[in-house]
């Protein structure tokens, strides 16, 4: 009996085997390789030698690491917060009944339907000195600015991320809103609850699970966002938008060609991502 159930188990495994193997090769093996690489010292063109935790000590003493960590947080948290607010407002709005709602629902996902690198190109035009951004500033009587200068680069790229990413929250929240039984509102109405009271007592608590999932997914992906800073500023000017993904890229491919150090960079922040992933996977699974 035992061998037979084993055989049947194995035959079931056969279906998932291709996926498991492919992901193993392009995800798990590279991950362990990163770990191994982070413990090496490798001058350009030479074979790597084992140096233990040296790269990690170097990173932990390096102010640039803390700087990029700080930039990552300053980038991701405001971006996720603003996306959540816009997404919620639009979801509440498009959950109302009115003509043309269907059209607006379709239009609302357009920013998300465009690949992020295209959105970045759109915002090259917005942030050009002769572009839309300064046109709007002049319209409201302000002086034009250099949008991607040291001072404004971070808020500027946050806006790009927000413009592209808010429909993700909107879709999540809309699905959440539609799942709330209307009887709840009807009985609240009968009991004389104000719209605001209904919102805080029914809508918000019932949206909380969706809210947590959407926010943690987005937080993870925004912290790991390579495309926006790469396309908009390349991490600059100077180090104004040097987030961890960009720092990793620069160390590995632009400045030092230092794979071990870049690997150690990725490894150092991996625990943060693993924690977020664990939290998200537990909720999704």
């Amino acid at each position: 009996m035992v061998p037979r159930s084993l055989a049947s188990n194995l035959s079931k495994w056969a279906y998932v085997l291709p996926v498991v193997i492919i992901l193993g090769v392009i995800l798990i093996v590279p991950l362990f390789f990163t770990l191994w690489m982070s413990l090496q010292y490798m001058p350009i063109g030479k074979a790597p030698t084992f140096v233990g935790g040296q790269n990690f000590f170097r990173i932990l003493r390096d102010p640039i690491f803390y700087h990029s960590l700080q930039k990552t947080i300053l980038y991701a948290f405001p971006a996720v917060g603003i996306k959540a607010v816009i997404g919620l407002l639009v979801a509440l709005f498009l959950n109302q009944k009115f003509p043309a709602r269907g059209v607006l629902r379709g239009i609302a996902i357009i920013p998300y339907a465009l690949p992020l690198f295209i959105v970045c190109v759109f915002f090259w035009f917005v942030y050009d000195y002769r572009g839309v951004g300064n046109f709007l500033l002049k319209l409201v009587g302000l002086t034009p600015i250099h949008w991607l200068s040291y001072q404004y680069a971070m808020p500027a790229i946050i806006l790009v991320n927000v413009w592209h990413g808010w429909p993700f929250f909107y879709l999540g929240f809309l699905a959440g809103l539609q799942a709330i039984p209307t009887e709840l509102y009807e009985s609240a109405e009968i009991d004389g609850a104000s719209p605001w009271k209904q919102f805080t007592a029914i809508t918000l608590p019932l949206l909380a699970p969706v809210f947590l999932i959407v926010c943690s997914l987005s937080l993870m992906w925004t912290m790991g966002d390579f495309v926006t800073p790469k396309m908009m500023t390349g991490g600059g000017p100077a180090d104004a938008t040097l987030t961890i993904p960009i720092a990793t890229y620069k160390i590995a491919f632009l400045l030092g060609l230092n794979y071990p150090l870049a690997s150690a960079y990725a490894m150092t922040i991996l625990p943060i991502f693993i924690a977020l992933i664990y939290f998200t996977v537990k909720r999704l699974g």
């Binding site: 049947s8 590279p30 690489m37 790991g224 990793t248 870049a262 990725a266 996977v281 999704l284 699974g285």
Partner: peptide
Amino acid sequence: YRGKQVVSSYILFAYVFPPFILMVPITV
């Protein structure tokens, strides 16, 4: 079957994983 939960979690893990971490090892 046994181990299905592991496979599911594995795929979910891969799904939410931020790909920039793979930049260096994939290149090598």
